[in-house]
């Protein structure tokens, strides 16, 4: 389990905003090993979300290369990226981002619509994912009928239901109280340890970062410090 899942080579990213070019990363190199659990911390505006977007294939670098599992993804087409995301990445957002009109089970099933799985296989996967996050009794509930913590667990179930290698979480506990946040983080830790998911999590909560295997500190587009957890 020491092979590199991600390799970022000389990645630069800049935005053009009102005729001004804001450079976020310049020649960033980074590797992420399969099975790692990385927390990324840093001040607001340091580029955490931008990095996550690049890793998740939601955004593309201005220059440089991103390799995933030995294949380049930075030069994929929009549709190619979409297919790649569907197959390889599970996303978890700060505000859960569940579909308000769908029940928990349907929300979890959503990514499976992008696979060729039949009805019964989908149903089984959804049940398994919900069970894993401990919400099998809430399958029929709408997001608005659940607490923030429960919604985030549904979001986790949605992220893992199609069994991706990678999970990307942007401030997954930013909207939750301590106890609930710990629950969610334990769940991520479990997914990393027991199911071998590679997890990259952006957070500004040092307590949350403790659940990761290592923490990278980002500032002005550069990694300034790396901490390994016990």
């Amino acid at each position: 389990m020491t092979e590199n899942l991600f390799e970022l080579k000389k990645v630069s990213k800049s935005f053009v905003k009102a005729k001004e070019t804001i450079s976020i990363f310049e020649g960033l190199d980074m590797t992420i090993k399969a099975g790692d659990f990385i927390a990324i911390m840093g001040p607001s505006g340091s580029g955490k979300t931008t990095l996550l977007n690049l890793l998740g294939g939601v955004d593309q670098p201005t220059s440089g290369e991103i390799h995933f599992d030995g294949k380049r993804i930075d030069n994929l087409s929009e549709n190619g990226l979409a297919a790649w995301r569907a197959a390889n990445v599970g996303f978890i957002f700060q505000f859960y981002n569940l579909m308000p009109m769908l029940s928990a089970a349907k929300n979890v099933e959503l990514p499976l619509l992008l696979t060729g799985l039949g009805r019964s296989r989908r149903k089984a996967s959804v049940e398994a994912a919900l069970k894993l996050v401990g919400l099998d009794d809430r399958a029929g509930h709408l997001p608005k009928e659940m607490s923030g913590g429960q919604q985030q667990r549904v979001a986790i179930a949605r992220a893992i239901v199609s069994d991706p290698k990678l999970m990307l979480c942007d401030e997954p506990t930013g909207d939750l109280d301590r106890a609930t946040a710990d629950e969610i983080l334990k769940m991520l830790q479990l997914l990393n340890r027991e199911f071998g998911k590679t997890i990259v999590m952006v957070t500004h909560d040092p307590e949350a970062a403790k659940y990761a295997k290592k923490t990278l500190h980002l500032d002005k587009g550069e990694f300034v410090k790396e901490e390994l957890m016990a």
Partner: peptide
């Protein structure tokens, strides 16, 4: 808008 962006993030193609 937000929901559509989420669906796209999950990998739903634009078409």
């Amino acid at each position: 808008t937000g929901e559509i962006a989420v669906m796209k993030t999950l990998g739903f193609p634009a078409a």
